[in-house]
Every structure is written in structure tokens, then in C-alpha cells.
Amino acid sequence: MPEQKPQLTVWGRANSVNVQKVLWCLTELDLAFERIDAGMQFGRTRDAEYLAMNPNSRIPTLVDGDYVLWESNSIMRYLCLAYRQDTPIYPQAAKRRAGVDRWLDWTLSTLQPADRPVFWGIVRTPPAERDMARIQKDADAAAEVWRILDQQLATRRFVEGDDFTIADIALAAYARRWLGVEGITRPTLSNLNRWFAEFASRPGFDRYVAPPMS
């Protein structure tokens, strides 16, 4: 009998950057899954059923049988540990894994707060309501954060060396937004651009991250 792939369910809308990270990771690991729309126009996140799974009323939420997990970076770690322990995208060696974890944490603590005002100010604000002067100030602040990653990439192919990892997934999902928004002035960061171009050929990026932003 052929081996059955695990049946995993991801709750969350496809245009959420945090959902996109998880979907890309699932693709890299070749894991079968179902996705259920939730959040923003789809609602559901304040329903009692959903709140019982995720009291934060946020997305994504992963359901694996009777196990439920929220927080996108934790979900990616879990998928690697539960289903593909030997995967190079989440290395086993302590120092290499700590390096990956560092950038996953940095994505949430430093990068996401800088990214959000620019993305929401343009992509999720009607043109007539955009305060472009304020958005440019936010973009200037975000550029200083992106310079940190650009410097990191000056001497390595991926963020933690020669191997693609889930840290690259998390960072590239946000880079898609930073490099894709229109109407702002941003510096040319050649290392960042070179690194980002690496992902165009990866099916998970192409299917879940590359489509038009909304």
C-alpha cells in the first residue's frame, strides 16, 4: 500500500503574508493539506469554533488531527520536526538551527513592524485616502531595517549560508511586499535583490507568494 500523505488543514486567507509562509513551507516539504478561508472578508476568526482553536482570533491556524497550533513561524518549525526531521530547510545542528531561529524571531520583532505601515498604507488603503508623505517616512524607516538583511546577504547565498531554510521563507514573504509596493522611493539593495530573485523558480513561492498583492 502506498504511503499516505498527512492530512493537514490550514485556516487563513491566501493573501495573508503569514499564511503564505506556511503554504510555501508545506510545498517545500511536499505535504498535502487543505486550506480554509478565514480572516478579513471571510470572517470566521471570531466564531466560537475558531476561538477554541486560536484565542487570538488571528491567522493562520494549523490543525493536524487533534493537534492545533498557531503562530506561522512555530507552524513551520513544527512541520519540519513532525514530518521531515532530516530536511535541510530546518537544520539539526544546534548553531545552524539557532541561526535560522534568530532570523525567524527577527522577522516578527523587527521586520514586520517596519513593513506593516507601508504595506497597509498602500495596498490596503484606497488611493484617495493614502497619506503618501507619511507612507514615505515609514518606507524610509523600513529601508533601514532592510539594509540589515542586505548586509547579511553580502557574503552568503541565503540568509544563513549556502542552504535555503525556513528563515528565507519568512523573510522572502515580506520582501515580496517591500519590493512589490508602488508609489514609494526605496534604496537599491543589490544583495537583497539578488537573493530575492533566487525564489522565482521555487513552486511554493510562485504559487503562494508571487501572485498580486491584496
Rank of each mutant, 00 (worst) to 15 (best):
A172K: 05
Q20D: 06
N18Q: 10
F33T: 06
Q112M: 08
W11G: 05
A200T: 13
P117M: 07
F119D: 05
D162L: 01
Q4Y: 05
A139V: 01
R207G: 05
Y83N: 08
E182Y: 00
D131N: 15
E198H: 15
I59F: 08
A93S: 09
D64C: 12
S16V: 06
Q41W: 08
Q152T: 12
S214M: 11
L171C: 04
R44T: 06
M132T: 09
Q85Y: 04
D138K: 03
G161T: 04
E129K: 13
S74E: 09
F33Y: 15
A175E: 00
R96C: 00
A173S: 14
S214W: 04
L192H: 03
L104M: 15
A38I: 08
L149V: 07
Q136I: 00
Y174R: 13
W195G: 00
M1N: 08
A197M: 05
G180E: 06
T165M: 11
I166F: 07
L26P: 07
P113N: 09
A143C: 07
L149K: 03
A200W: 05
W120F: 15
Q20E: 09
D150A: 04
Y83I: 06
K95M: 11
I166T: 06
D47T: 15
K95H: 10
R44D: 02
T45V: 15
S109H: 07
I36C: 05
V68C: 14
I89D: 07
E144T: 07
Q152V: 11
F119V: 15
L26V: 01
L104P: 06
M40I: 01
P211G: 05
A170N: 02
P212R: 11
Q7P: 03
T45H: 02
V181N: 04
V22K: 06
I59D: 06
G65L: 06
D64A: 13
R186K: 13
T165A: 11
R207V: 03
P6A: 08
A197I: 04
R102S: 14
T125Q: 10
L81G: 10
N191G: 12
Q112W: 08
A38G: 09
C25N: 06
S201P: 00
W70A: 07
R157P: 03
P55Q: 11
I135Y: 02
T185H: 13
N193D: 13
N18H: 14
V17N: 12
L149Y: 09
L149P: 02
K137F: 00
W120R: 14
L51V: 15
T125G: 09
D105V: 11
V63M: 10
Q41K: 13
D131V: 02
V68N: 08
E3N: 11
E160W: 01
S74W: 05
I169G: 01
L179Y: 03
A210H: 04
R44V: 01
R194H: 12
T185M: 10
P113L: 03
D138L: 01
G12P: 10
Y50G: 06
D86K: 12
L69C: 07
Q85D: 12
L171A: 05
R130A: 00
P187I: 00
I75W: 08
R176H: 08
E3C: 10
D131E: 06
N15C: 12
F158G: 03
I89C: 10
D131F: 02
I89Y: 09
E198W: 07
D115M: 15
G183C: 08
R130P: 02
N193A: 14
R13P: 02
